[in-house]
Design a protein around this nucleic acid. Structure first.
Lengths: 224, 224
DNA sequence: TGTCAGCCTTAAGACAATCTTAATATCCTG
DNA sequence: CAGGATATTAAGATTGTCTTAAGGCTGACA
């Protein structure tokens, strides 16, 4: 998971980043609101952590700026203040969640994951080539033909779709499907195989491709 | 990874270097800002650690000087001061990150790696002459024709591109591709050859050139 | 409470891609 | 032209991925 951390206190920033990277996230920094906006627009982050108290452009401004630019990346507001008014202000600016510093790291991580999960699910209805996906109803069709998946199959499909057409590493899939467990590629391989059996095998060309050494991706591409 | 450490406290310098070398990095020293600038310009370092408090030319000056010379090597500022103003000053001079001393070595190492990784990813250079490179999709085209690479091939291409048009020494390539292993030019030659076979051989002129005694580089230049 | 179906995990072996080694050839530089 | 540096090739080792099957777990339901 790629996270953008916008926080002017370098020390705090460092300790948060250290923790996030320990969890396997990739963390970029911005130390000013200005830089935050620029990075958020250029880079592709899955979640943005945004300190409220920043010089000049504060967290609210950054968030509002992003939303005005049409960016919907989930934003988690970080702040030392805990009053209701501030919270409301944060949400009015388009923040998706709100955490009061200092907060225990595991809590922060949980909130980040919740946000990420939610943002993925917002793609209730999706299409990819011959695929029709409805995450809410858990209905899936390829070329008009219904396909049924197991819960794990859905999760794998979910993360593959959300990154398509990029390659997703096996370890990222694992972290997404089994967030609190030891990595174990064995089972992932089995589930991947099951997913392919349901999604690709009955049809004329595969959507799920493996890129040896890097991971897998889902693309609608008859050749590749 | 080659790191330049610019720090006037010889004792601190030594202890940092000891740790870095334990992690497999190669560490050069400068004890004055002056020497730091010269080394940074002559040698090719992947990351520069820069103490802020230096006699005469201080860290900010060194960093600014480098940027003015067109050098974009990532700079990690080291300092005992932790105020917001100092941080801002560091960043305005073009520093990429900021660590407050004393900081735990593993944290320092994490930041160095994060910087390094980011600098590689910032290859906005997704193109080089007839080459189209997409690291996220792991897709590569030359003159519109798809080329597939092995993981090692990608890594070599990555470091060549990130230094282009400069020559990259074989030992630097090795350190990048096999960070925790003994150097062994044998295999590097084999992989280089494979890369050329995929990238150059099927086409009318080579992009990868060897500069005997110094290393190799990737340039789009039909003559040279 | 016992049974069953669906799902998940483990394990083992097959297969494929990639890597390394090593032996030999060729190229450069002084 | 000699010697080191680089290139080439092929075989064998290693690692990554796929496939299958058996057994375990869990929740629904009688």
């Amino acid at each position: 998971m790629r996270i953008l951390l916008v926080e002017d206190d370098a020390e705090l920033s460092a300790s948060i980043a250290e923790f996030l990277e320990l969890q396997g996230a990739e963390c970029d920094f911005a130390y000013t609101g200005q830089a935050g906006v620029e990075l958020a627009i250029s880079g592709s982050y899955e979640v943005i952590l945004l300190d409220v108290m920043l010089p000049k452009l504060d967290g609210f401004d950054v968030c509002a700026a992003l939303r005005n630019h049409g960016y919907s990346t989930p934003v988690l507001m970080l702040t030392a203040m805990g009053t209701t008014e501030d919270q409301l202000k944060g949400f009015r600016a388009g923040g998706d969640d709100y955490v009061v510093k200092p907060c225990p790291m595991p809590l922060l991580w949980a909130r980040i994951n919740a946000l990420f999960r939610r943002s993925l699910n917002q793609q209730a209805l999706k299409r990819l080539g011959p695929l029709n996906i409805d995450f809410e109803k858990r209905k899936l069709e390829r070329a008009g033909q219904a396909i049924s998946l197991t819960p794990t199959g859905w999760k794998i499909l979910e993360i593959l779709l959300s990154h398509s057409p990029k390659v997703v590493s096996r370890s990222n899939i694992e972290r997404f499907v089994w967030p609190d467990e030891e990595p174990d590629q064995g089972r992932l391989n089995v589930h991947l195989h099951a997913l392919r059996k349901a999604l690709d095998q009955p049809f004329n060309y595969p959507l799920i491709k493996t890129v040896t050494g890097f991971g897998v991706c889902i693309i609608d591409d008859k050749k590749a």
